[in-house]
């Protein structure tokens, strides 16, 4: 992302921010879903795309963040909504950081598919514990106080909140990508042993990427829980989220910064708008998309465009 990219992003953001003024509520909700998904996708890609540790279980952090926030906010019911949300965000992020730090050592010893599936296991275990330990109220459910001011429609409020959160996550990911830390993560993705041999502190970097990704995912989970208003274990620890986070990057371009943004936009558009009335087809459509992607466009949309541009540039030169 260079300077003109930054301007482009800010321009798009300004345009998007005006969305709720012009769009009917249904499309505001779709936009809200897109922004939430895009933010999640970028948070995922800090670990999965940059460091190459593709997690199949990031919904664990959404769920843990959401429940941690909900349980603490109930204790302080008298706080004004804005402060409650802020406290929820901080608590959710902190608990996710602790969880990620605790499991980082064993789980980051695994690579590739083993890491992916072990994370799926983490997500299932968190869901199970959350559901079965009564104090966590997973099966009973948790209520979240409304945070949108009365003058603003809730879907418009969360739309703007996700836009803001998404920009924040994108900025963090961009700063990481530009930094020495980011270069180290890329080298880990490419060849971990060689990276270590060049002096990259691979263990520390992987752990840091894992924890950062977990915190951001958890905080997004907190916002998501507020936008739902009421959550149970099933509404936050979702296997389709686990999968979609991989698909966003795959669809947009694995390892790139904007890949998950593009992928999230496309997938939400396909499932919510094109297949919006055909709920029974969602699993099938997602599966089919995955199969087609793997077979036809493994580089995702960005890879496809880049390949096409490269060919176009090279042909006249040769």
């Amino acid at each position: 992302m260079r300077r003109h990219h930054l301007l482009l992003v800010l321009g798009c953001a300004a345009l998007l921010a005006a969305g709720p003024l012009a769009l009917p509520p249904f499309y505001v909700r779709v936009g809200q879903m897109m922004l939430y998904s895009a933010a999640l996708g970028v948070a995922w890609t800090i670990l999965g795309g940059f460091a190459g540790y593709a997690s199949f279980g990031h919904a664990a952090f959404i769920g843990v963040g959401a429940f941690a926030a909900g349980l603490i906010e109930v204790q302080f019911a008298t706080l004004p909504p804005f402060l409650a949300l802020l406290m929820g965000l901080l608590t959710g992020g902190a608990v996710c950081a602790i969880l990620a730090a605790a499991i980082a050592y064993p789980i980051l010893r695994l690579r590739g598919t083993f890491f992916a599936i072990a994370m799926l296991g983490v997500s299932h275990v968190c869901a199970e514990l959350n559901n079965n330990v009564d104090a966590l109220q997973g099966s009973l459910g948790l209520n979240f106080p409304p945070v949108a001011p009365d003058s603003v429609a809730p879907e418009a409020f969360f739309y703007e909140l996700y836009l803001f959160a998404g920009l924040a996550v994108l900025l963090i990911a961009w700063r990481i990508r530009q930094s020495r830390f980011g270069a180290g993560l890329l080298s880990i993705r490419e060849d971990e042993d060689t990276a270590r041999m060049l002096g990259v502190p691979t263990e520390r970097y992987k752990r840091a990427a894992f924890i950062i990704s977990a915190i951001l995912t958890g905080m997004l989970g907190v916002i998501y829980a507020h936008s739902l208003g009421y959550i149970t274990t099933d509404s936050v620890y979702r296997d389709d989220t686990n999968l979609n986070l991989v698909v966003f990057s795959l669809l947009g371009g694995m390892g790139t910064l904007f890949g998950p943004v593009i992928g999230a936009g496309l997938l939400v558009f396909i499932t919510q708008v094109i297949l919006g009335r055909l709920l029974d087809f969602h699993l099938f459509a997602t599966g089919l998309l995955l199969v087609i992607l793997v077979l036809a466009a493994p580089g995702g949309a960005l890879g496809f465009i880049r390949g096409w541009r490269r060919r176009r540039v090279q042909v006249p030169a040769e």
Partner: peptide
């Protein structure tokens, strides 16, 4: 064992970013 997806420049730059 190059970092295959990166350019030659980026490969060498990672050496310079880390190392001694």
């Amino acid at each position: 064992r190059p970092f295959r997806d990166l350019s030659v420049f980026e490969n060498v730059r990672i050496g310079a970013l880390f190392g001694k």
